[in-house]
Design a protein around this nucleic acid. Sequence first.
DNA 1: CCTAGTGTTCTATTTAACTATTACACTATA
DNA 2: TATAGTGTAATAGTTAAATAGAACACTAGG
Lengths: 129, 129
Amino acid sequence: MKFDDKIPIYYQIKNYLYHEMMTGALKPGDKLPAVRQLAVDLTVNVNTVQRALGEMITEGILESQRGKGNFVTMNEQRITRLKEQLVMEQLERVYEQLHALNLTDEQIITSLKQYIAQRGQRDDQRVSD
Amino acid sequence: MKFDDKIPIYYQIKNYLYHEMMTGALKPGDKLPAVRQLAVDLTVNVNTVQRALGEMITEGILESQRGKGNFVTMNEQRITRLKEQLVMEQLERVYEQLHALNLTDEQIITSLKQYIAQRGQRDDQRVSD
DNA sequence: CCTAGTGTTCTATTTAACTATTACACTATA
DNA sequence: TATAGTGTAATAGTTAAATAGAACACTAGG
């Protein structure tokens, strides 16, 4: 896995696992790969994986069972709330950044629409999906 | 100045200066505060400031004159391109992140609109501007 | 009971970022 | 020419993140 060296790896691992949960690749109750296996898959050290998982366990998103494995919480509300929170964080950040670049609310929305439209064109050229 | 400890300070300083240029607080040809003064203002070390400025000089956004100071480039096209690039980076990032959270193109635009609308309400309560 | 698979913890080491301090190079000006 | 203000560079020390390696604790199944 490729990492952005501007951001701590354990932090990027958390985001990776969040996304796996949001897209349904990891569902409530699912068992995660073993920490040693995750470390191999992500080409990082076990301790780095453990740090990421440790925080997610503290947050109540994951549940650890010693000797068995790490599991996604069965509490679906927690996952729903997490998704809302992650979306909100992204919106806040992009809004503040673009606002700081002196774009108006209108310009922010317009530029996003344009970006998506252009991206659509670009993707259409690759696959006529 | 407050920094996000997830991101290198020199990197955040670059962004800060970018924003100063985008909002017109720093115009083409303007002289920046002395590196030592910037270090005091931002409560960081001179070397950290220097690292940020050094990269911006390499990028051609700033021009350094030994003994005189650091200046914003007179080449306005470079600044225009920089702004376009910064906006595009933000759009790309938020799009990819929200897409990874399984939102459709439509949902991405809608959620941003909603966010801005809600934010507008919130701001209206504070100041009837 | 033994073993394989799992999570957990610890120590030591390396590396990048940041800091602290000092020195050097150049410019303007009194 | 002396001095103050500026950028530049080098050295040394600190800290957080990441790595490497080992040991410990628990579970399941033969």
